[in-house]
Design a protein around this nucleic acid. Structure first.
Lengths: 195, 195, 195, 195
DNA sequence: TATGAATGAGGATTCATTCAT
DNA sequence: GATGAATGAATCCTCATTCAT
């Protein structure tokens, strides 16, 4: 029951942030959106900041789960890597709310330790997942392991940079097209190192 | 005189935003930091939002000028392109305040039309600048023009994605190392298309 | 059972008031301190104010019982009077919590009829008890009854005034020393009237 | 101007406390009573507690000034001492608001350091003033200095104890009558020590 | 009896904005 | 141009009280 209520409030908060923006959201708004009283929010969360941190954690978890879903099942190395890059690049299109939430929180990282920790952990996990895929490629002899330690940051960084650009300006480019090019660049890079 | 006062206030606002974060800054804070009264701020800016938009414009202009400075003088195509990529990648290290400011504003884009317009224009200019460099490369016969229309978004996107990752977590990777790899990836791509 | 529960809650409330102060105590605090739920408090007490009035009554009764204990047994007039004065003067030292509680409630007397009535009754009983001792002294011929009607108020008043001073500032004076002097002043007064 | 505004707010706060009681007073009440906006209170006082401490200081200062006024001019030792005792005893009648305020704050002493400090200082000054009068009596040879060090606490303590009793229950006794008796007790005591 | 989730009015405090000086 | 006192709506949060279980 407690978990249900917490999720109810978190989802209300997410809808509010998407609709009005992080800075403009009040506890009253969230309570109304979630269909509860303001008081109950303080029963389940220490304060507004605690709630917002839970929102971030929840969003990260959901996004992660969603992005992994399709990749998990794929075995062949190259196919798995390319599908993962595609997934990352397609987040802004397929889950635009996530970028809304993310952009709202990124500005807070520097000023809010809890937000910083949660965000750092999320980013590290993202890179780690890519690293693991690449490791498999190395182990199976497809690619050499040299010069691969930064590739995860590049893949995640590009995904994020494109996502933000596209969120700011949907007319900037075609995500589909750019994703293809980027996949090609990555393949070039890992095989060139190998040959 | 008006310009001096405006810049004085804008710089106070920038210092405040960097120090306390966008959401936590009040007009009183800015006035105190700039060494003026709150009243005078309303003499030179329509309201707080107007001031913040001016801050964004000012930051974008300064960052742009700084990033261009070294590149402008370089003539040879490849050298110019690589130097520009390097410049973009090094912004978070050499001008970390810019990323502080940028991240503070990115969350507002969706909810504030003026911020949206200014940000969109800035991003377009960034891509345009890269496109121009590439165009010169095509004209001078170094590379073919096909498949280059998305490269600017990739270059800018990666710069931004790395900048944000690094701003969030300085231990994530070495900017220098990653910049080298990325430059290699870009060269691979443009010459492979050509040959 | 009802009495046990009520006393359990009252004692929780007393500990809370001593620890945090009357104004700062919530029903939730009291429930937690007493080891019960908030709901049960409303089963045994009409509301928070009712509970607090019961706390006051209980404190007055306990303090009264404690102060009387030693005096009751003493028969000789002068010895009994002096011992009672001493008891009154020593309350702040021997039962400092009582003064904590008392001071917390005194400010409410004017604004809370129930508190006013309970406090007035307690103060009257205190004076009455002194009056009875003096009456015995008169009956037994030790002192004359003229000019004695105010002595109880003086004895109680001084006890209270010293208690409050000492509660505010333990370094203000030595209760033992002052009690001796005051006993002497009272004896001087009642025998001077007599001779 | 700042001082006038501060006094305006303090007086509003005093009227509120007298009318509704310390615990029941809100900043909104005080603002309304003082005829200002709530915002301005935070312009002149750090917070509600700061304002209340200023109220206490102000009340203490005013009460002190008022009590001293008549005594200051009197030179002869005995007359001066008796007049001072009388003044102390008559405060509840002549300045009942002071006792209202005092009782409202006494309960806070233990839980509020600023209130504690201000109250301790006030009480010490009260005793000091009595001590100075007695010193003069000693110097001029009217009385001996032995056994006088506690007399100030007794005089202040009785004044306070009677004041509180009378504030709680006006029918308890006649202040005039009791003041006469107490003055007699003090004279007995100081001269008995002398002869 | 007993619990503690739920309510929502009310409290302290902040802050963008105005305006008399 | 320049100041900063003044406003009051809005914010976060608390808490007495109720009630379904």
């Amino acid at each position: 029951m407690e978990e249900i209520r917490k999720e109810q409030v978190i989802n209300g908060a997410i809808r509010c942030i998407i609709k009005k923006g992080f800075n403009q959201v009040s506890v009253k708004d969230i309570a109304a959106e979630a269909g509860v009283s303001t008081g109950i929010i303080y029963h389940y969360f220490r304060n507004k900041n605690d709630l917002l941190v839970q929102v971030l954690k929840y969003s990260f978890r959901k996004s992660h789960e969603q992005a992994m879903e399709t990749v998990e099942k794929i075995r062949p190395f190259e196919e798995k890597l390319l599908k993962h890059i595609e997934n990352i690049n397609f987040v802004p299109k397929e889950n635009p709310d996530f970028y809304s939430i993310l952009l709202n929180f990124l500005g807070q990282v520097k000023y809010n330790q809890a937000v910083e920790e949660v965000t750092q952990k999320f980013m590290r996990n993202l890179r780690l997942y890519v690293d693991r895929i690449l490791e498999v490629g190395v182990k199976q002899g497809y690619i050499k392991g040299d010069h691969l330690e930064c590739l995860s940051a590049i893949i995640i960084g590009l995904g994020m940079g494109l996502g933000i650009q596209w969120t700011i300006d949907k007319k900037a480019f075609s995500i589909d097209q750019i994703s293809e090019i980027f996949k090609e660049m990555v393949l070039n890079y890992i095989y060139k190192q190998t040959n």
